[in-house]
Structures are given as structure tokens and as C-alpha cells.
């Protein structure tokens, strides 16, 4: 496995997100990055409807961007990542992650009496290889909103542990983003003594999609 960090950043003043993203891609190419293709991550949020027996007994918190007059008791974030195209990641508010075959998606329509499908968000862009890094650039869009967030995902291929990798990932991100670099911290969902896993990456995307109105470093 490898270590992957997701950074959300804002375009410099006076520059559109599209232009800022193109500038970043150009910079990666000048540094010797080879384009590998496209990538995408999508997320659908299902929120519980009122009246599920016993649900209020479980430890739940209110999901962020779901709207509506009554706060749902539970939310299921169903995420897909083109890196793991045969899997579905179902994540709860308390960051419990269920990794399942992609056929898990077919359960959700059968649960529509209990869980209501919300709007779909996604992130996509280009993927580059640069020495011992895989770099993804792209834009996240949020269903029903005009808001766009610029993303930079950096994979360091030579380590399995965040504490060994975060320094070098930070240096590369600083080099690529200059003054737009927002800083990065170890996500609170990552345990430093455990090997980085695909769940740790998808938790970073879940944090991004559940905090749509507050674009900042994923913490």
C-alpha cells in the first residue's frame, strides 16, 4: 500500500478555478510529470427517514449538508473511487467504513422506505506520475450547488505510514501550490501506528463531501 493525502485548495485571487487547475497541471508537466489518464470519485448521501425503530438509540450525529427541516438521525455516504472500481465504500457519520463489492449499490434502492437518496457530489480530473509520486489534480462539484473546490491528491509510493510520508508530501504540495498551499495535517481518522489503507483515503473524501460549505484543509 501507499500513503495518499487529499488537499483542497483555493485559486489565487482574480483567477478562476479552471485556470488555476490548468496552471497546476502545466507545472506538474514541466517538472516531468507524465499524464496517466483520468480519475474520479463520487459520493451519494442517503439520510434516514423518521420512524426507524431503535435508530435513535444508536450513537449518531447530524450529517452536514443534508438540508431539510428535520435533522436525520443517520446518514450513509456511499462512495466510489476509480482506483478501486469494483468496490463500494459505505461510510457513516462516526466514520465506520464498510468496504463492499460494487453490487452493494443495488441494496440502496430496496432501502428507500428507510433511507432517502440525497444529491450526488463528485470529483474528477487528471492523474500524473512524477518519480515516486502519483499526483491527481481536479475539481470537486457538489450536487445542487454551484460551488467548486480545487483538489490535489498526492500518493507517495515508498511508504505505508503517514508519519513517514507527510513531510515529503507537504514539501511537494508546497512546491506545486506556492501561495495557495493551505497546509496539511494528518487526518484525525488516520492512526499513525497503522498502515495506510484505502479506507483512510475514502474517509478524507467523505470529510470533503460532508463539509461542502467550508473548503479548507482536510483534517
Amino acid at each position: 500500500m501507499v500513503v495518499v493525502m487529499l488537499i483542497s485548495w483555493e485559486s489565487p485571487e482574480g483567477m478562476s478555478p479552471g485556470h488555476a487547475n490548468e496552471k497546476l497541471q502545466k507545472k506538474i508537466e514541466i517538472l516531468g510529470g507524465k499524464i496517466l489518464g483520468k480519475w474520479d470519485v463520487d459520493c451519494e448521501v442517503y439520510s434516514s427517514l423518521n420512524g426507524i425503530v431503535g435508530l435513535s438509540d444508536t450513537q449518531t450525529t447530524q450529517p452536514a449538508n443534508l438540508g431539510g427541516a428535520t435533522a436525520p438521525q443517520q446518514a450513509i455516504y456511499v462512495l466510489h473511487n476509480s482506483n478501486y472500481s469494483l468496490s463500494t465504500f459505505a461510510i457513516l457519520e462516526d466514520n465506520t467504513v464498510l468496504i463492499a463489492d460494487s453490487s452493494f449499490d443495488q441494496f440502496m434502492p430496496h432501502m428507500k422506505v428507510f433511507y432517502k437518496k440525497g444529491q450526488r457530489s463528485d470529483a474528477k480530473g487528471n492523474r500524473y506520475e512524477l518519480n515516486e509520486f502519483i499526483i491527481k489534480t481536479g475539481v470537486a462539484t457538489f450536487g445542487g450547488s454551484q460551488q467548486k473546490i480545487l483538489l490535489l491528491e498526492i500518493t507517495y509510493l515508498l511508504s505505508d505510514y503517514v508519519h513517514e510520508s507527510i513531510g515529503i508530501i507537504r514539501e511537494l504540495a508546497k512546491l506545486l501550490l506556492d501561495n495557495s498551499f493551505p497546509g496539511i495535517e494528518t487526518p484525525i481518522t488516520v492512526r499513525e501506528d497503522k498502515k495506510f489503507s484505502p479506507s483512510d483515503l475514502l474517509l478524507q473524501y467523505k470529510a470533503l463531501f460532508s463539509h461542502v460549505k467550508k473548503p479548507s484543509t482536510v483534517k
Binding site: S48, I52, V53, G54, L55, T58, Q59, T60, Q74, I76, T88, A90, L92, D94, T96, V97, L98, I99, A100, D101, S102, S103, F104, Q106, F107, F114, Y115
Partner: peptide
């Protein structure tokens, strides 16, 4: 669908 070990906890949390 095949799933990871968290299945019992996951199902319990969603009701």
C-alpha cells in the same frame, strides 16, 4: 455483496 468485517456494526448503526 461481499463485505469487510465491519458489517455487523454497520448494520446495527443504520437501524
Amino acid at each position: 455483496a461481499g463485505t469487510s468485517d465491519e458489517l455487523p456494526k454497520f448494520l446495527s448503526c443504520i437501524g
